[in-house]
């Protein structure tokens, strides 16, 4: 399984608090069957490290994981909270795309209607491939809006946690999206001290939606990003 959304680099955002935390998360991820992880620390108000700072912390993590023999390949990106500055931030490389590719992981306000499909359209118009993080969590999106996002060449990511939820809007929205075949990625969005739910979510997806769906959302689309 390929995990494209995680907060595993220590002391960069509200994710891992220490290198020990990070290594523990990497170990549990590996055991649960995750072979590749893209580290995507937040880029938003309160967490605005420079690419250089993040790259240096990432290298430390990579080296530590290697020296411990943890069998997970690590890649770097960022989860970018979209503001009106997004185009400048991308152009001037103040933010990181995923693994140096044109894929960008984007986050939006959960409650304020952010016209997501317009932003996705605009970014794909200038050559990026936008991925909407935990798309099921934006309260103002209807299914038509989500279809609009896909037709604007956006890709959709759902959190493993939400795949496991049976109750609540997040879980119900996730289910609706799967039923319509709209999901492109399931990812952990793992923060500090939490297990990686990818494996459990994988079982649910396989059982409810089939082997093909499982392959697509846990592996196939993400392969495009880690291939570079």
């Amino acid at each position: 399984m390929i995990d494209i959304h995680s907060h595993i680099i220590p002391n960069i955002d509200d994710g891992s608090r220490s290198i020990e935390d990070s290594l523990a998360m990497l170990k549990t991820s590996a055991i649960s069957g995750v072979s590749d992880i893209i580290c995507t620390p937040h880029y938003r108000e309160g967490y605005k490290k420079t690419p250089a700072e993040i790259e240096s912390a990432f290298k430390l993590l990579k080296d530590s994981a290697k020296s411990q023999g943890i069998p997970v390949n690590l890649y770097l990106g960022e989860e970018i909270f979209v503001t009106k500055n997004i185009k400048t931030e991308l152009k001037e490389k103040q933010v990181l795309t995923l693994n140096g590719t044109k894929f960008v992981l984007l986050e939006f306000d959960y409650n304020i209607n952010s016209e997501i499909s317009e932003i996705v359209y605009e970014l794909s118009r200038i050559g990026y491939i936008p991925i909407v993080a935990h798309v099921n969590r934006y309260n103002y999106l209807s299914i038509d809006d989500v279809i609009d996002i896909k037709r604007s060449h956006g890709l959709l990511q759902v959190n493993a946690d939400d795949v496991l939820r049976n109750l609540g809007r997040f879980g119900k929205n996730a289910k609706k999206l799967f039923n319509k075949g709209l999901v492109d990625f399931v990812a952990s969005d793992i923060h500090a001290n939490r297990e990686n739910k990818m494996s459990e979510a994988g079982q649910i997806v396989k059982k409810k939606f089939g082997e093909d769906a499982y392959q697509v959302v846990f592996h196939d689309v993400a392969m495009q990003i880690i291939k570079g």
């Binding site: 359209y121 794909s124 118009r125 038509d144 279809i147 609009d148 037709r151 604007s152 060449h153």
Partner: peptide
């Protein structure tokens, strides 16, 4: 860039 839109019908 061409954009195809699904209509409600």
């Amino acid at each position: 860039m061409f954009f195809k839109k699904r209509k409600s019908n």
